[in-house]
Design a protein around this nucleic acid. Sequence first.
DNA 1: CATTTAATTGAGATTTAGTCTCAGTTTAAA
DNA 2: TTTAAACTGAGACTAAATCTCAATTAAATG
Lengths: 139, 139
Amino acid sequence: MPNKRFKKFLSVKGFKFTKEREEIFSEIMLIEGHFDPDELFITMKTKGSKVSRASIYRTIPLLVDGGLIEKVEMTDRHAHYEKKPGKRHHDHMICSICGKVIEFYSPELEKLQESICRKEKFKALRHSLEIMGRCGDCG
Amino acid sequence: MPNKRFKKFLSVKGFKFTKEREEIFSEIMLIEGHFDPDELFITMKTKGSKVSRASIYRTIPLLVDGGLIEKVEMTDRHAHYEKKPGKRHHDHMICSICGKVIEFYSPELEKLQESICRKEKFKALRHSLEIMGRCGDCG
DNA sequence: CATTTAATTGAGATTTAGTCTCAGTTTAAA
DNA sequence: TTTAAACTGAGACTAAATCTCAATTAAATG
Ligand SMILES: [Mn+2]
Ligand SMILES: [Mn+2]
Ligand SMILES: [Zn+2]
Ligand SMILES: [Zn+2]
């Protein structure tokens, strides 16, 4: 389970493996698709969790650093994340009419980006590509 | 001057060409590189402008819609923009160590994106690609 | 197991980017 | 001109994210 990876990451970094962090982490692992910290907080609270909003906002960057989730930074005013393993990297098309999000992955595009970075002597760690426009349904 | 383009855009959309909008627009055109709305407000205020923060926040989306500026949405907590004409579209590599921003433009990459969108029946209007990592200087 | 200490927590205050309200003003078309 | 709709500024408001600090807890050490 990815639980092991999280535990490992924490100990390597000298952070503690607390029940709050575990709870937050495993709740996130249940989520299919995007989530935002506050909606996660509400969900957990509804389920009876005592974990605070502060702990959620503190744990999320740890998970990002540990490579377990990634920021997808939607068009909205607040940050969105999604878990990384289980779903390989992909980019987004976002319809500005209906809000639909089309996930896509193009190996050619990824390759091309890598070669561009190489040319600039830039060591890419992650990237975010969002294409805004109108989806097929919205003409 | 791009001023004409802005005026045209406003009249086509049925919006009014006010002195506030003109002032904001021409101030932006003076800026080389990125800016954020609040720093623009301070700059203008310092120069003696009476334009309100609200008008700045109201005018910026108009300029984006009109294709005169674009959101670059930096890693920060608030939005950044930059003027579009004079400088053709480009994407960004951002060094997470020193913060350096490398602007690049790859016609191949743009072409590839277009063809991917066509495949999804998605009509792309704009996009933002940010590659995070470490620049040459930062190893 | 008991001790110790630095990390972590929750509650709520604080910050701040961005939006909204509304009465008064301005634009531009007629 | 006149007129109607668009626009403005001041400041209230919203909400995402961060911070504060006293109390708690993980986990290393003996
Ligand atoms: Mn990609
Ligand atoms: Mn591009
Ligand atoms: Zn759509
Ligand atoms: Zn650097």
